[in-house]
């Protein structure tokens, strides 16, 4: 496309000769280009729109009307019905949401705080075995989550933590190698002069961290917080394994249980309410922190 577009820049003559035909061709090419982009965009947006429409339809019309047709008479009562204990089916999305919030906040706060402490030690302190321990941390990055599910469950069984919130967030709340690695890279780039100045003013390690390192590291802390929060909110397999009473379920478990459990396929409208309320916080985060998310993805590839 831009072979044609770029050639006029080399000299004025070809543009004059190209004339109208060239312009029309270029315009139609541009139109097709944007139409393709828009078409792809529609594919990405469609399930969200379907879900919102479906969550506002009465159960009877979930399959009798096409998903792309908006509800003719929005059934707003679906939302309170799904949030509270609805008598016909056990939907307690309010409860699930509370559980998810508790676990996710604990996981996020712990992961950010303890990763930060470890990253400070690796980036700014010298001690015997430092590089060896850091190398061990990096090695654990190769271990896929699914591989440790069985032994982790065994551990939780012997720690008597099965079916508690603790079991869900503890494995990820003491700092994770990946976040430690990200933060260490960032902390290393803080100029030594700034830290020396604080030390001359009588700051110990804790106050250096609090007064110098943290204020200078806001981007990486927000990135780490986002990674932890999204992981906690979307986590499914581990809570599925380690929680066995419905009152402890997270949103993901509640959704899956409702869809595959007894009486599944019924009240799909309420299930879609559950899906929508699970997705809304993630979409809000995505919009608000878009720049940080893009940055965190690019950090992953080392670019």
């Amino acid at each position: 496309m831009s072979t044609i577009a770029a050639s006029p820049r080399l000299g004025a003559q070809p543009a004059a000769r190209g004339g109208r035909a060239n312009k029309v061709l270029q315009f139609s090419k541009l139109t097709v280009f944007y139409l393709v982009l828009l078409g792809v965009g529609v594919v990405f947006m469609v399930p969200y729109i379907f879900a919102v429409f479906g969550s506002l339809k009465p159960e009877s019309s979930i399959f009798t009307t096409p998903a792309w047709v908006p509800p003719s008479n929005p059934a707003w009562s679906n939302y309170p019905n799904a949030f509270l204990n609805f008598s016909q089916v056990q939907t307690q999305f309010g409860r699930y949401m509370l559980n998810t919030a508790i676990v996710t906040v604990a996981l996020t706060v712990g992961q950010v705080l303890f990763s930060m402490l470890a990253a400070y030690a690796f980036a700014r302190l010298t001690f015997p075995g430092r590089d060896g321990i850091f190398w061990l941390y990096l090695c654990t990055l190769m271990v896929p989550n699914i591989v440790t599910i069985v032994p982790l469950y065994t551990e939780m069984h012997y720690l008597h933590l099965v079916n508690t919130y603790w079991a869900v967030f503890l494995p990820y709340a003491l700092g994770t190698p990946y976040t430690i690695f990200l933060m260490r890279q960032f902390f290393r780039n803080i100029p030594q002069d700034v830290i020396d100045a604080a030390k001359i003013d009588g700051c110990g390690d804790v106050s250096v961290l609090r007064r110098v390192v943290i204020p200078l590291s806001r981007p990486v802390i927000i990135t780490a917080g986002l990674i932890a929060f999204v992981f906690g909110w979307n986590n499914f397999l581990w809570p599925l394994v380690v929680l066995n009473s419905q009152s402890h379920y997270l949103l993901t478990n509640g959704l899956a249980n409702f869809s595959t459990g007894p009486g599944s396929g019924e009240y799909l409208n309420l299930l879609l309410v559950g899906a929508v309320i699970t997705l809304v916080p993630m979409l809000v985060l995505f919009i608000v922190f878009n720049r940080y998310i893009v940055r965190s993805i690019q950090l992953t590839s080392g670019k």
Binding site: G41, F44, Y48, L271, L272, G274, L283, L285, F286
Partner: peptide, 22 residues
Amino acid sequence: FRVLYLAPYLSTPVAMGLIWSW
């Protein structure tokens, strides 16, 4: 468009799976 295409990335896979199963 870059932002638009990235939107599903954070979306809870379980919730998206349910919508797609419908």
